[in-house]
Amino acid sequence: TELRLDINGREIKVDGADKETLKELLKLAEKNNDEKAIRIIRHLLER
């Protein structure tokens, strides 16, 4: 399955993203107070 998050109005594919990319996405999600995106990205970073 493909995991996509809508961050800042942009749909971004997050599964398969490297750790650096995920960290950047996490910063974006935190800036937007997007709890769902934050939770998902943190979960991916823990893998």
Rank of each mutant, 00 (worst) to 15 (best):
A37D: 01
I40C: 07
L26V: 02
L3F: 05
K23V: 07
L22Y: 01
K36W: 10
V14I: 08
N32C: 07
L45F: 04
R39N: 09
T1S: 11
L28K: 03
K31A: 12
N8W: 04
A17E: 12
A29K: 00
I7P: 01
A37N: 06
E11V: 12
R4W: 15
A29C: 05
D34H: 04
D18E: 04
N33T: 05
E2N: 07
E30S: 09
A29I: 02
R47M: 13
K36V: 10
E24D: 08
L5D: 08
I40R: 04
D15Y: 08
N33G: 11
L5S: 03
R10E: 14
I38M: 13
K19G: 06
K27P: 02
N33C: 07
K19I: 12
E20W: 11
D34Q: 04
D18L: 04
R42H: 05
T21R: 11
E35F: 13
V14W: 03
R47G: 13
K31F: 12
G9Y: 03
I41K: 00
D15N: 13
A37V: 05
I38C: 03
D6T: 15
N32Y: 15
I12M: 06
A17M: 08
D15I: 07
I12P: 01
N32W: 15
G9S: 01
E35C: 07
L26S: 01
T1Q: 08
L22N: 00
K19F: 07
E46M: 15
I41L: 14
L44M: 09
K13Y: 15
L5I: 13
E35M: 12
I41T: 00
E46N: 14
G16P: 15
D6W: 15
V14N: 01
H43Y: 15
L28S: 04
I12L: 05
I12N: 02
L26I: 04
L3M: 06
E20Y: 11
K31G: 07
N8C: 08
A17Q: 09
K27R: 11
L28T: 04
E2S: 09
L26W: 05
L28D: 05
V14L: 07
V14T: 03
R10P: 05
R39E: 08
E2R: 05
K36H: 12
D34I: 04
R10N: 11
L45V: 02
T1L: 10
E35N: 08
I7F: 12
D34S: 06
I40K: 04
D6G: 04
K31E: 10
I7T: 02
E2L: 10
E30L: 14
L28N: 03
R39W: 14
E20L: 05
K13Q: 11
I7S: 02
T1M: 09
G16H: 10
N8M: 09
K23P: 01
I7N: 02
I7V: 06
R42D: 01
L28V: 07
K27N: 07
T1C: 13
T21Q: 12
L45E: 00
R47E: 10
R10Q: 15
R4Y: 13
L22V: 02
R10S: 12
E11I: 12
I12C: 03
N32L: 14
E24V: 13
E46P: 03
D6F: 15
I41V: 04
R10D: 10
H43E: 09
E35Q: 12
N33D: 06
D18P: 03
D34P: 00
H43L: 15
A37F: 04
V14Q: 01
N32P: 01
K27F: 12
L26D: 00
D6C: 15
L25V: 05
G9D: 04
E46L: 15
G9F: 03
G9A: 01
L45A: 01
I41D: 00
L25K: 00
L5R: 01
G9V: 01
D15L: 08
K36I: 10
E2G: 07
I12A: 02
L44H: 08
A37I: 06
L22A: 00
T1K: 06
D34T: 02
D6P: 03
K13M: 13
N32K: 05
R10A: 12
D18T: 06
H43W: 15
N8I: 03
R47T: 12
E2C: 15
H43M: 15
T21W: 06
E11T: 11
E30T: 10
L45I: 06
R42Q: 07
E11A: 04
A17T: 12
L44K: 02
I41F: 03
E35H: 12
A29V: 07
N33S: 08
D18I: 03
L44Q: 05
A17W: 08
A29R: 00
K19M: 11
N33H: 09
L25S: 01
K31C: 05
R47A: 11
H43I: 13
I7W: 06
I7A: 02
E30R: 14
E24M: 15
L25A: 03
R10H: 13
R39C: 07
E20Q: 09
N8E: 05
I12Y: 15
L28H: 06
N33A: 08
I40V: 09
A37W: 03
G9C: 03
A29W: 02
N32S: 14
R42S: 06
L3W: 04
T1Y: 13
G9Q: 02
G9E: 03
L22R: 00
D18S: 07
K27T: 07
E11R: 05
K31P: 02
K13H: 11
D15H: 07
A29F: 06
E30Q: 12
R10W: 13
N8L: 06
K19T: 12
N32T: 13
E30P: 00
E30A: 10
K27D: 06
L3R: 05
E20R: 09
H43N: 08
H43G: 08
I7K: 01
R42K: 10
I38L: 11
L26H: 01
I12G: 01
K36T: 09
K13G: 05
K36Q: 09
E35A: 11
I38R: 05
L44E: 03
K31Q: 09
E20I: 06
E30D: 06
I7L: 09
K23E: 07
H43V: 12
K27A: 10
L25T: 02
L28E: 08
R47V: 11
R39D: 06
E24I: 14
N32Q: 10
D18F: 04
K23C: 05
D15P: 03
A17F: 08
G16D: 08
D34K: 01
V14R: 01
T21L: 09
T1P: 14
I38V: 10
I41A: 01
L25P: 00
N8S: 05
H43D: 10
L5K: 03
T1D: 15
L22Q: 00
E30V: 13
L28C: 03
L3G: 10
I41S: 00
K31N: 09
E24K: 13
